[in-house]
Amino acid sequence: MLELRLVQGSLLKKVMESIKDLVNDANFDCSATGFSLQAMDSSHVALVSLLLRSEGFEHYRCDRNLSMGMNLGNMAKMLKCAGNDDIVTIKADDGGDCVTFMFESPNQDKIADFEMKLMDIDSEHLGIPETEYEAIVRMPSSEFARICKDLSTIGDTVLISVTKEGVRFSTKGDIGTANIVCRQNTSVDKPEEATIIEMETPVSLTFALRYMNSFTKATPLATQVTVSLSSELPVVVEYKIGEMGYLRFYLAPKIEE
């Protein structure tokens, strides 16, 4: 038996809107630790890792580890039917073939339940090694989204370079080139507007903007985004989900042949 009650149901709505276009089907894993997902996009270029820790739920019952295969588009459709202030409860029986999403309005005057069929998904779980990244950039998530959107009107790829000067985002296309440099800025009154650059070694990597733009659909989840880079390794773009977990996107770099 599984029963997970999330008071801030909008978090799950936002998570689904962030990943439904990147990943079609995925297994949600439920254990004592929390509710998690790891999935790749169909071309195996990007990997999504979601964790919602059990402590973040108002009620968390998971009698045994359970893996539930879901079509993310269908799950997003169902969660779209929940109000932004609704409490969302996820329920499933061990060995059952469906999952129920229950939505309660804050004053309990409306209760809805949506039942969705589960599916068998053969998924490959990848081990993500602990990595000391050469550069970690923390910046406002809206600023990062704006940069990715703007650059994608000029080119298809972004070269991200971190130096002592700051972080540079560059692209080139048929019509010309673009460079955007963000410098460290910790002097702002509001911590959510800060840009913080931790650099061990200068690093420079190229990525497909199409994927970066897809990741920025998670912008409503967090005011800040963390971009972690190391030479010849996938970049990690992380959005924290309140105090309860994270949504991380890993993207393989473009490599010179």
Partner: peptide, 14 residues
């Protein structure tokens, strides 16, 4: 043009 890497060449199956 640089070639798109595959995530499975960085992270191994467990």
């Amino acid at each position: 043009d640089p070639k798109q890497g595959n995530i499975m060449s960085f992270f191994k199956k467990v």
